[in-house]
Amino acid sequence: MSGKSPALRTSLPQRRLARKGLLFTAPYVVLLLLFGITPAAYGLYQAFIVTKIMGDPEFSLWQNFADVLGDYRLGTSAANVALYMLTWLPALLILVFALALAMDAKRSKFAALTRFLTYVPGAITGSAAALLWLFMFSPTVSPIGPALRALSGTDATFVSDETMPLILAIMGISAGAGGWVVILFGALTGIPSDLIESAQLDGATAWQTVWHVKLPMIRSYVAFVLIVSLANGFQVFVEPTVIRAGAPAHISQTWSVNQLAYVYATGGQLNYGRASALSILLLAVCIGLAVIIIKRTNFYSLEDN
C-alpha cells in the first residue's frame, strides 16, 4: 500500500504506473459502483425499513431480521439447502480431485479427452440445464424413463421437494465439475516436477505423494473451489425456479433460502425490507464460512512467501 513507502509518492515512474493501473481498472470500478456497491448499499438500507400493510413505513434496526428469522418457511428452506450442499459438495470435491489427480498421474491423450468431455456439460447454462434435467426426471419423456418408473412405480415426475437435493447435486456436478477439473489439473501441473521426483526418491508411494505433497501444494485452489461452491450452493435459485415452472405443484416456490428472499420481494407481500434482510443474512453466512476457510487453509500465505 502507498503508506509503506513515502518515497513512492515522489517517484514519477511509479505515479505514471499508478495512473495506468487506474485507467485499466476505471471501467470496472465504475461498473462495480453502479451495479455492485450501490445496489448493495441500497439493499442494506432497505433491510432497516419496515413495510407495514397499513400505515407508513418505519425504521427499525432489527424488525425485518426478526421477522425473517421467525418465518415459518425458513427452517424448511434452510434444511433443503443444507441437504443439497451435503449431497453435492462432497461428491463434487471427491470427483473433481479424483479426475484431476488421475489425469495428472497419467498424462495421456485419453486424459485430454476426459478433460474435454467433463468440461462440455458446463457449456449448458443454469436455466437450460434445469430444463434438460426436468425432462430427464419425467418418466414419460426421459431416456432413462424405464429406470425411473422402476424406482418410483408411477409415471409421475420424479421431481419433488424431497428429490430436489439429489437432482440439483447431479445437475451441479454435471455442469460444474468440468471447469474445476481443468483448473485443478492446471494447478497440479504447476507443481515443480523436481519436488515430486525428490519425494519419490525418498520412497514416497503414489498415495503419499498425493496426500503429503500434491494436495498441500494446491491448498489455496482447494480453498477457492470451496469458497465459490459454498457461495453458489447457499444462493441456489435458478435451477429450482426453472424446474418448478416446468413441474407445476411439485416443488415449493420457497424451496431454497434465496427463493424465499425472492418471494418476499415479488410474491404476495412486496416486502423489500425482509428480502434485503434475508439476503444480508445469507451474505453473512457465506462471508463467515469464507473467512473460516481462508484462515484454515492459509489462503494468502503463498503471497506472503
Binding site: 509518492r9 493501473g21 459502483l33
Partner: peptide, 19 residues
C-alpha cells in the same frame, strides 16, 4: 493497488455522494 492521495479522495467522495 497504489492510488495517488488526491485520486483516492476523489473516489471516496464520489462513492459517498452516490450512497
Amino acid at each position: 493497488m497504489y492510488l495517488g492521495g488526491k485520486l483516492r479522495k476523489q473516489i471516496a467522495i464520489g462513492a459517498a455522494a452516490m450512497l
